[in-house]
Amino acid sequence: MLKPIFYEQVMKRILFIGTAITVFILFFIILYILKNGLPVVDLEFLLSSPKDFGRAGGIFPCIVGTIVLTLVAIIIATPLGVGTAIYLREYTREGRLTSIIRFGTECLAGIPSIIFGLFGFVLFVVYLGFGWSILSGGLTMTFMILPTIIRTSEEAIKSVPASYREVSLSLGATKWQTIIKVVLPSALPGIVTGIILGVARSIEETAVVIFTAGSVLRIPTSLFDSCRTMSVHFYILAREGISMENAYGTAAILIITILLINMFAYWLMHRLMAKYS
């Protein structure tokens, strides 16, 4: 009888060590970047233009580029994603069509970014003649973040109690009025969560942006301008060894942004779940 209990104690220790290592590695990465990067970061770094390819100066154009590119992607992906989620949840029964659409969404979520990059490059940059531009980058990014928005919106819409829909219908609302006035407002936190996760994905992406939006280090003035996002800037600084110092600084900004965004998204989703469970 002693043996199984002894064995359990051993396994528990081993599993604990595995957990500790995992958590340690992940924290180490963040702290390492922050420790080396934060000293570089100040208002000047955030708000001034880079000099000498990024050896000196700040990252302001990259911040602008990141924001604009992300905005384009979100503005297009949100109606598409939320519309799909509404269709899947409110207008069809589970059946062949929904499972095909879901499978398509999953595949889209699994496609490597480099493939999106290739696709966006051929379709938008070359074929449609948008060139390396914010528009090409934003459109390609739309496709990448679409699955995230669909999935979270679906979850959010699913969590709205069925009784709300019945009440609204019984008060003389049409299906669409019910969706607009009751379902979507109640699902809003979840939908916003999806959008925020899409924003995070768009900020951290590198390969797609290089192939579709290029990497010109200037403040863009139109949608047809090329831009360089923070991730791309960081990649170029680090890979070409231009400036380790500024690379750390950019990475620190990137990580802080992404963590804050993800934390906010998580908090919102948690609130939605608490409300209806």
Binding site: P161, E166, V167, L169, S170, L171, G172, A173
Partner: peptide
């Protein structure tokens, strides 16, 4: 919607929106 305005309904569990 016309029918449901003519025939109002109250559910078993109160569901205020």
């Amino acid at each position: 919607p016309w029918l449901r305005r003519k025939v109002g309904m109250v559910f078993a569990l109160p569901v205020p929106l």
